[in-house]
């Protein structure tokens, strides 16, 4: 820790990258400026909009507040890593089909966030609108109110929220069906890939 830069290793979308970064560099800037992965967007750079949402070790996180140096050794999945070759992730496909976006700038963050939401919900996590958070009450259904609350960390100024909620509900149902078909092992469309 004697210098102002750090040598780090990041596993991004299944590929390991060795980088030397200025300690001030955020994960967001490392992705955009060093790895040319510009799908992750910078909307506010202060954790106030969610445009930079990626999956960090499988959980959604705002890359703008994550120092790259502190992400050494961690696994990152960005929007560029969500599709399976030419086959879009169900969330991506649903955003496209339902017109869950307009200008598209918040979209990668919305999609990464939605994939995280589906996983968090599958893990039984309650939210701020869950009527009864006690474990005995069981997991809440992922209805429109739950989706709205859980997706509220992603601002969309074009106002695509109504379609976003529809898209997330549709994709969540597909992911759940995929899980069921795969024997409930969390290996559905959104299951394994987010932590890969």
């Amino acid at each position: 820790m004697e210098t102002n830069s750090s040598a780090i290793s990041l596993r991004v979308n299944g590929e390991t990258h060795a980088l030397t970064v200025d300690n001030r560099t955020t994960l967001l800037d490392a992705l955009r400026e060093h790895l040319d992965l510009t799908g992750t967007k910078k909307g506010c750079d202060h954790g106030q909009c969610g445009a930079c949402t990626v999956l960090l070790d499988g959980r959604r996180a705002t890359a703008c507040l994550q120092l790259a140096a502190a992400a050494d050794g961690r696994t990152v999945t960005t929007i560029e890593g969500m599709a399976d070759g030419d086959r879009l992730h169900p969330v991506q496909q649903a955003f496209l089909d339902f017109d869950g976006y307009q200008c598209g700038y918040c979209t990668p963050g919305q999609i990464c966030s939605a994939i995280g939401v589906i996983e968090e919900h599958a893990a039984g996590w309650p939210s701020a609108v869950t009527a009864d958070v006690r474990p005995e009450a069981g997991p809440p259904p992922l209805d429109a109110d739950e989706i709205r609350e859980r997706m509220s960390g992603n601002l969309c100024r074009c106002g695509a929220y109504v379609s976003i909620v529809r898209a997330v509900a549709e994709a969540a149902a597909q992911v759940a069906a995929g899980r069921e078909a795969a024997g409930g092992q969390g290996s559905g469309a959104g299951g394994t890939r987010v932590t890969a």
Partner: peptide, 21 residues
């Protein structure tokens, strides 16, 4: 189970992304 208001308070803060960090 034991402190539901604590879980609710945490969930009322920030966003899912930020709470993960």
């Amino acid at each position: 189970r034991r402190y539901p208001a604590l879980a609710q308070a945490v969930l009322a803060g920030a966003s899912g992304q930020l709470r993960n960090m």
